[in-house]
C-alpha cells in the first residue's frame, strides 16, 4: 500500500468555484408550473366546498369564500417559487465528476465522482413524459442520504448521461479492480433500462 503524496499547488487544482452550470431542460420549469398548478387547483376546489355546504347565513357563506382566495394566493406564490427554483437548478460534467446545483436562497452544490456511482436509474412520471423529461438517480455506497437525484433533464440527455457515467464508472473501477462486483456496476443495456411508470 503506497500512498502518493503529491505536492499539489493550492491554485493548480480544478476548482469547485469554476463550474459553469448548464440549466435544466427548457421544458422543466413549464412542467413544474403545470404540476403545481394541477395540485393547487385541486386544493382550491376543495376549499370552495365549505362555502357551498353552508347555505343559511349569507355573511358566513361569503366569509368562507376567503378560503379559496387564500388558497389562490398561496398557490400562485408557491408555484412561482417552485418555478424559480427549477430555473436556478443546474448541472455540469467534468472529466471525472458530475456537479449539481440547487436552491434559491440556500444554495447547494453537490459533486459526485463517476467512480463512486454504483448504479443509475432513470424514471419519468406521466407528466414528465408529456414534456419529454426524465429524472436521473445515482446510487452510491453509504446509504440513501447520499444518493443524488437530478430532476428535469430531457429524456435524451438523461439516458446519454447515464450511459456516459456508467461507462466511465466501469472504466475507472476496472482500473483499480472492480470494488463492488462488476455485474452491478456494468452499464445497463439501454433497451432494458427501467423506465418506471411513476417517478420512483
Amino acid at each position: 500500500m503506497t500512498f502518493q503524496n503529491l505536492p499539489v499547488e493550492p491554485g493548480s487544482l480544478p476548482q469547485v468555484s469554476n463550474f459553469k452550470f448548464k440549466p435544466m431542460a427548457p421544458a422543466y420549469p413549464k412542467e413544474v408550473r403545470l404540476q403545481h398548478g394541477i395540485v393547487w387547483t385541486i386544493v382550491i376546489l376543495a376549499q370552495v366546498i365549505p362555502s357551498i355546504i353552508v347555505a343559511k347565513p349569507l355573511g358566513l357563506k361569503m366569509a368562507l369564500l376567503g378560503l379559496p382566495v387564500l388558497g389562490l394566493i398561496m398557490g400562485i406564490g408557491f408555484t412561482a417559487l417552485a418555478v424559480k427554483s427549477a430555473r436556478v437548478k443546474g448541472w455540469t460534467l467534468r472529466q471525472h465528476d458530475i456537479a449539481y446545483r440547487s436552491g434559491i436562497w440556500w444554495r447547494k452544490i453537490v459533486v459526485l465522482p463517476f467512480d463512486r456511482v454504483q448504479h443509475a436509474e432513470i424514471s419519468s412520471g406521466p407528466l414528465q413524459r408529456k414534456f419529454g423529461l426524465a429524472s436521473l438517480k445515482f446510487f452510491t455506497a453509504g446509504g440513501a442520504s447520499i444518493d443524488l437525484r437530478i430532476d428535469g433533464l430531457s429524456e435524451d440527455v438523461a439516458s446519454d448521461l447515464r450511459e456516459f457515467i456508467m461507462q466511465r464508472a466501469a472504466e475507472s473501477q476496472d482500473d483499480h479492480r472492480a470494488p463492488q462486483g462488476n455485474s452491478e456496476a456494468a452499464p445497463a443495456d439501454p433497451d432494458k433500462s427501467p423506465v418506471l411508470p411513476n417517478g420512483a
Binding site: 499539489v8 463512486r116 470494488p179 463492488q180
Partner: peptide, 20 residues
C-alpha cells in the same frame, strides 16, 4: 471549504487505488 473539497475530489478522482 472549497479548498478542502477540491483536494478531496482531486484525490478521489486521481488515486490509483479504489476506495473499497
Amino acid at each position: 471549504a472549497r479548498r478542502f473539497a477540491d483536494l478531496a475530489l482531486h484525490q478521489a478522482e486521481s488515486s490509483e487505488e479504489g476506495w473499497f
